[in-house]
């Protein structure tokens, strides 16, 4: 802006055209990111408006918005969303921390990893929710059990991702570190941990989706805990497909927001910091 005025040209015109260009870029970006959503909405609306499907099978976008608004007003949906998000982030963070710690501690000792890794890989086939009865026995029919299940659902894929990441650290990097005298905890903390960060990001995204699934499944069963899972189950129980779809919509929107606002930024930051240009 200051350079514009300095060159004595027509600063206003230059600024305006630049603003227009900026606006056009934003518009293009919006079109690129939103065209599919818009298309679905239009087809959805058409199908319901033309009466091709009865409303009890597929409520119209308006019905779902109405259910959403109603649920926010009468069923404290926002409170449920908040409780769920809090639980999700907490459980996920605990799961990630435990998985990375275990990966670093045991990944350094082949004997430990050889023993633990097959068990984790086998556990991947067991749905986390299968452990809910056990969690209820140990922690009670309450939010703690749900949190533990969420953390455990996060932990399994994350621990495997950590092992995978550790094996991808270039050998010369490890040798360089050890030759400079890095050992033990210092070595794990300052060399292995940062070295695996780029490959961990994929694991973080994967385990995030696992956390969601475990959490929803657990909330549906442990219904004394307020949360989106409970609202979803309520929708099922009272045959209210509009409520079910409203909750799905919320989860979808949260998923998109998280992907765009958290993971995409994290990835960009890691790519820049770790010099992984051309990764995208």
């Amino acid at each position: 802006m200051t350079t514009n005025t300095a060159d004595g040209g027509a600063p206003g015109a230059a600024g305006a055209s630049r603003a227009a260009r900026g606006a056009r870029r934003v518009a293009m970006l919006a079109v690129r990111k939103l065209w599919f959503i818009a298309l679905i909405l239009v087809v959805w609306w058409l199908v319901t408006a033309l009466g091709l499907v009865p409303a009890y099978k597929l409520p119209s976008p308006g019905d779902v918005l109405g259910a959403l608004e109603n649920a926010i007003r009468e069923r404290e949906l926002l409170g449920a969303l908040w409780d769920t998000l809090l639980r999700l982030v907490t459980g996920w963070a605990i799961g990630v921390a435990c998985a990375v710690a275990l990966g670093l501690l045991t990944g350094a000792v082949p004997f430990l990893e050889d023993g633990i890794r097959p068990v984790l890989a086998g556990l991947q086939a067991v749905p986390t929710i299968a452990f809910l009865p056990l969690a209820i026995l140990w922690f009670g029919f309450n939010a703690t059990a749900v949190l533990v299940i969420t953390a455990f659902g996060t932990f399994k894929p994350m621990a495997l991702a950590t092992y995978g990441a550790i094996h991808q650290v270039p050998p010369t990097l490890k040798m360089a570190g050890r030759a400079m005298g890095a050992r033990g905890l210092f070595y794990q903390r300052t060399l292995v941990l940062p070295a695996i960060v780029p490959s961990l990001v994929t694991g973080l995204k994967l385990s995030w989706s696992f956390a969601w699934r475990s959490l929803m499944a657990a909330e549906i069963i442990v219904s004394g805990t307020t949360g989106l899972g409970g609202v979803l189950e309520l929708g099922r129980e009272i045959n209210a497909i509009d409520i079910v779809m409203a909750v799905i919509l919320i989860i979808l929107v949260v998923g998109i927001l998280f992907e765009q606002l958290v993971f995409a930024r994290l990835e960009r930051w890691v790519n820049r910091r770790w010099g992984l240009v051309g990764a995208r």
Partner: peptide, 30 residues
Amino acid sequence: PGRERAIVFQDAALMPWLNVRHNVEYGLRA
């Protein structure tokens, strides 16, 4: 490994997340 020896590899094997100064400092921290 010992303090009286240091090694340089063909691929520099630098730590990509550290800047030049911190890369050079790493061994001293260790």
